[in-house]
Simulated assay, not measured.
Amino acid sequence: MKPNHKYSILPFNQCALCGINSDLKLSHIIPRYFGKSIKGGSQTIVDALNPEKMPKPQDITKVYLLCGDCEGKINKWETLFRNRIMPKNKSLLAPVIYGEWMLKFAVSISWRVLTYLKYSRLHLTDNISNKDFEKFFPEIKSDSNKEAETALNVWKDFLMGEINDVGIFKQRIIILNGANFPYENPNVVGFTIFQEDGMLTTHALMKNFIILGLIKESSILKWEGTEIDPVRGELGKEQKVPEVYFNWLADMFQEIETSSLMEWQNRKKQNPYNQGF
């Protein structure tokens, strides 16, 4: 790993998960196959900061983060999700049973998102082409820093097998079917935080799925059918989300649509020969 490489975010040359001094691998914050599956068409990629559209989508966010062993550990959970939850031609509306690996998969994403947001200096709104999009990439409020650091450590210990549950730092999964929210786009990949009405979560948007990593709970916000069971659960049941989250996500989808259109128009002006989708 090159210390000053553009993909370097850690202030140390150790695996962010196990802490071993090692040559770090380029790790995607969101599993690579989510971005890869939408690269071939006229789809939208939100790479943490800058919404952009075809014909030249960039790779989704990746940084030097994990050693080879930890990268392999996380890859096993990612493979289980890809093969059992999102195989080709399988309806997302049909009930799907999952095992204890699902919580590992979700926590691995929430941990990567929060680790990236902690160390990366690239997560700045200066890079956002549409300034109306800035509100969806807030910094964690200072009075929540302690809880965020605790969540990061709990998720880390859980992934390393040092503890058997995540306690209050639970995980939620939301399934998108294309008609849940206004302007819903099931071909978006990106991450940020949701920080409203006393609740704070990491927020990973992965095509038809959203993973929320709970950092601070709010007693006034009610969720149904979204919490990931630590042992065995079922996807496909009815899900309900709080109104404040519904409105926040609907607004985000609308801004993604606007930002993608702006970016696409700018690209066409810069290169008039790239007209086709």
Rank of each mutant, 00 (worst) to 15 (best):
K2C: 02
K2S: 09
K2I: 05
P3G: 05
K6C: 01
Y7P: 00
S8P: 00
I20P: 02
S22M: 03
K25M: 04
P31I: 07
F34L: 06
G35L: 07
K39Q: 15
S42V: 09
D47E: 13
L49G: 08
D59G: 05
K62F: 04
C67Q: 11
G68Q: 13
N75E: 14
E78C: 13
K90I: 10
L92H: 09
L92D: 03
P95V: 04
M102Y: 06
L103R: 10
V113F: 08
Y116S: 07
R121P: 03
L122S: 12
N127T: 07
S129M: 11
N130A: 06
N130Y: 13
F133P: 05
F133K: 07
F136Y: 14
P138H: 07
P138C: 06
E139S: 15
E147L: 13
A148C: 08
D157I: 00
D165A: 13
I168N: 11
I168M: 08
Q171W: 01
A179Y: 09
F181L: 15
P182L: 09
E184F: 11
E184R: 08
V188E: 07
F191P: 08
D197N: 15
M199V: 01
L200G: 04
T202W: 06
H203R: 05
I210N: 09
K216W: 04
K222W: 09
D229F: 01
R232S: 07
L235Q: 00
V241G: 01
V244S: 15
W248K: 08
L249H: 13
L249G: 02
D251R: 14
M252S: 03
M252C: 09
I256M: 14
T258P: 00
R267F: 02
R267S: 04
K268A: 08
K269G: 01
N271T: 10
Y273I: 11
